[in-house]
Write a protein that binds this DNA or RNA. Structure first.
Length: 119
DNA sequence: CCATTGACCGGCT
DNA sequence: TAGCCGGCCAATG
């Protein structure tokens, strides 16, 4: 499993996050078949081609906070887009108990089978 | 090679 | 709750 494969899996997983939900970096990596790959998810987002139009605003830290500084343009865009989808940020954080993405079993099963190799 | 960096995480004060 | 800290791991210098 090379770098391009990992990036494709991560991008694909991010595309799967439905509106109205959020996912954290480690969760995305795990679903993509990359345990302990939270920082890889961050890298994948940073280098993602613009034309993929990933729903990057649905990716936040496990704590429920945005990864961006609260005065940055990115942060405000993320907060606004989440609000549009019905996901409120109270005091700069999303309630993960309520809004964390819980992929259904069938959503996981159509992933490439070797996503489960290292288990 | 070795060091630093980063859209991270979990445990522990 | 808020930091601090060590661990993590590919990329970058």
């Amino acid at each position: 499993m090379d770098r391009d494969m990992r990036l494709r899996r991560l991008w694909e997983t991010i595309q799967d996050i439905p509106p109205g939900s959020v996912a954290n970096y480690g969760q995305i990596a795990e679903i993509a078949g990359i345990p302990r790959g939270a920082r890889m998810t961050a890298y994948a987002l940073r280098v993602a081609p613009q034309e993929l139009e990933l729903p990057w605003h649905r990716v936040i830290q496990a704590s429920g906070k945005s990864a961006f500084y609260c005065n940055s343009r990115h942060f405000k865009m993320q907060r606004d887009r989440l609000a549009d989808e019905g996901v409120p940020m109270i005091n700069g954080r999303v309630d993960m108990k309520q809004y964390r993405w819980e992929p259904a079993l069938d959503e996981l099963l159509w992933k490439p089978s070797d996503a489960w190799d290292d288990q």
